[in-house]
Amino acid sequence: MKKLLILIAISLLAIPFIRAEEKKLNILTTTPDLKSITEEIGGKYVNVTSICLGNQDPHFVEAKPSIIAYARKADLFIVIGLELEVGYEALIIEGSRNTKIKPGTDGYLDVSEGVLLLEVPTCKIDRSMGDVHPYGNPHYWLDPYNIRIIAQNISNRLQKIDSAHPAEYQTNYQTFVKKIDEAMFGVQALAKVDGDKLWEMELSGKLEEFIKEHQLQLDGWKRKVQSLRGMKIAIFHRSWSYFTNRFGLVVGGEVEPKPGIPPGPRHLKDLIKKIKLENVKVILMEPFYDRKSSDFVADKTSAKVVVSPISVGGEPAVKDYISFIDTLTNRLLEAITIK
């Protein structure tokens, strides 16, 4: 008994030393996209773990004991918000007993603040409509514009909670945003015009005029997907709304009859009709859903099934946000060029 007490006393004494050694911020994110961005901005000052993997459905993740153990020592918990994580967020925060990461504190960051939102319900919703999200579609990270805002939210918060390295975070943030802007509009355009200005034009729909007026050379995703503009596609789940909205694709059908509800035969029959009628070329789907329904529809129509990750890490080659959007756009382009 005495020995045990001494042992406990020694281990208690050791706690402050263990803490002193660890200078890095421990950060827990819900999705791998948030992890990737946080690592780019936090650099060597952060340790980041993501709850959800790139090939997992971010709606349904279990609050595993190992995640709770990690959350106990987290300095910051970053979430997508808009009830995407409603099934596990509270279990992790409460289960970890970590008062630092409670909502409302500096250790909790909902990066949806200020993002451009789609599909915000304007009528009364209830669960007979499937998995509808009362604050809007939560898959907003598929719009590169929102990635800039997410990065800004993360950078601001890191600067606030770690006052030792604000300049580094700011620099990393600017580098990251520049990378995204270059990937979006091309290096040459960015060399002549500020990224913010280009986005302002993009959001107001005046980008083309602006490009002509200033004799810029548009490159990047914006040019790459020009051939896809106006193309009709069918989607499995509404994970793609932000992507189609940004790049001008038109959703002409959904494999799910309602969000979160797998299709039945009647719906697939209607979908086949719709795809034929609207000349839909591609059925775009997430990697975690069963291909069976999409393949069935593709078989009966001329549409092709395209499977793409919806997150960083969804496939081994998809290591960051830029390679993620590259992969997604490449898959779509391949599908329409290869007959």
Binding site: E119, T122, M129
Partner: peptide, 15 residues
């Protein structure tokens, strides 16, 4: 499989 979901408009809003 009634597509009730289309009741929800695809509008854009700044949060």
């Amino acid at each position: 499989d009634d597509n009730q979901f289309s009741l929800i408009p695809q509008n854009i809003s700044q949060t």
